[in-house]
């Protein structure tokens, strides 16, 4: 038994998600260890984001169980909970592939919104807040301190009062992570946090994620295409292809796994020069590329279009 299965933070069992006739995830089981970084990788359209959406409650899985167990032993059955309750009670926080910040609000406000539930309680559900109760003021100061801590942590302290929409791309990614952390999570789900980052920025990201794992004792679930990030920091990698798990192990094991190599490099596929053009015609996707990705794109293009619809 691998060490992530001894006392997992998250245990996904036989997860299946169908959209109409399309099976986006088929019978997927994996564990995410406590205080570990678990990476979920796979070619585009493999169903990684769908797994995230099931875990965070945005989709209700067709079949299967998703169990979350905190270190203190409290258990949650995520497949039965609403999205906001999962964050509120089960303490799962997430970021999005296409960044979703409150762009018209300042960085500080973004982080304050993340502490909504704590502040709501402290303001006696607004009633106490209206009359400025001491309890609410204390809670608000506490919240501000937490904001400052995370702003410092992601190097955005000097821009605290600027609107989030003004930030450059990389900073927006970091802010989104900080915002997720402000909800006080036990499990952090990051959807392609390194997408669009330059090498220096993704290096910083690695340090940030390691620090979140080690200093805050967090379990992190990560979807990522950037192999330098995945191989550099993951403790455990799960590989998906067409909604099914094809490999599961440590980075060293995954690197040499024949099924993974086949999925990524497309050994069995016969090369058709015409399809390279298809790849080139999708500039947005090619832009954030590492070599294996191009091949991945080609495989997706080969499948009927229906395969892609409804996913993500």
């Amino acid at each position: 038994m691998q060490d992530w299965s001894k006392d997992p933070e998250l245990r996904v069992q036989h997860l299946t998600m169908r959209f109409g006739g399309l099976t986006a995830i088929g019978d997927l089981s994996f564990d995410a260890g406590r205080k570990q970084i678990t990476a979920l990788i796979g070619p585009n359209g493999a169903g990684k984001t769908t797994v995230f959406n099931c875990i965070t409650g945005f989709y209700k899985p067709t079949e299967g169980m998703i169990n979350l167990r905190h270190a203190d032993g409290t258990e949650f059955m995520l497949e039965r909970m609403d999205d906001y309750i999962i964050t509120q009670k089960a303490k799962v926080a997430r970021t999005f592939q296409n960044i979703r910040l409150f762009s018209g609000m300042t960085l500080l406000e973004n982080l304050m919104v993340a502490q909504h539930n704590m502040l709501m309680k402290a303001s006696s559900y607004t009633i106490g807040g209206i009359f400025g109760s001491g309890k609410f003021k204390r809670a608000e100061n506490e919240a501000l301190e937490r904001c400052k801590y995370w702003l410092n942590k992601v190097n955005l302290m000097d821009r605290a009062d600027d609107p989030a929409g003004d930030l450059p791309y990389g900073a927006q990614r970091r802010l989104e992570i900080a915002r997720a952390m402000c909800t006080g999570p036990r499990l952090l789900c990051l959807d392609e946090p390194a997408a669009g980052l330059n090498p220096r920025e993704s290096d910083e990201l690695n340090k940030l994620l390691l620090s979140i794992r080690d200093d805050h004792n967090m379990a992190i679930l990560l979807i990522e295409h950037d192999m330098s990030v995945v191989m550099g920091i993951s403790d455990h990698i799960v590989v998906l292809d067409y909604g099914r798990k094809i490999a599961d192990g440590t980075p060293a094991q995954i690197k040499v796994d024949p099924a993974v190599i086949r999925a990524y490099l497309g050994v069995e596929e016969d090369e058709d020069p015409g399809e390279n053009i298809v790849v080139a015609a999708a500039p947005a996707k090619v832009a954030k590329v590492s070599v294996p990705r191009v091949v991945v794109q080609k495989r997706v293009a080969k499948k009927p279009v229906v395969k892609k619809g409804g996913r993500k």
Binding site: Y84, Q88, F96, M105, H116, M120, S123, R179
Partner: peptide, 24 residues
């Protein structure tokens, strides 16, 4: 107050609100 900030956050992005544990 938190409720007002949640209103504005809701205007900005409802999905993000839900991901932060806000009962929309």
């Amino acid at each position: 107050l938190p409720i007002g900030r949640a209103w504005e956050a809701l205007r900005e992005d409802e999905v993000a609100c839900r991901s932060l544990g806000i009962n929309t």
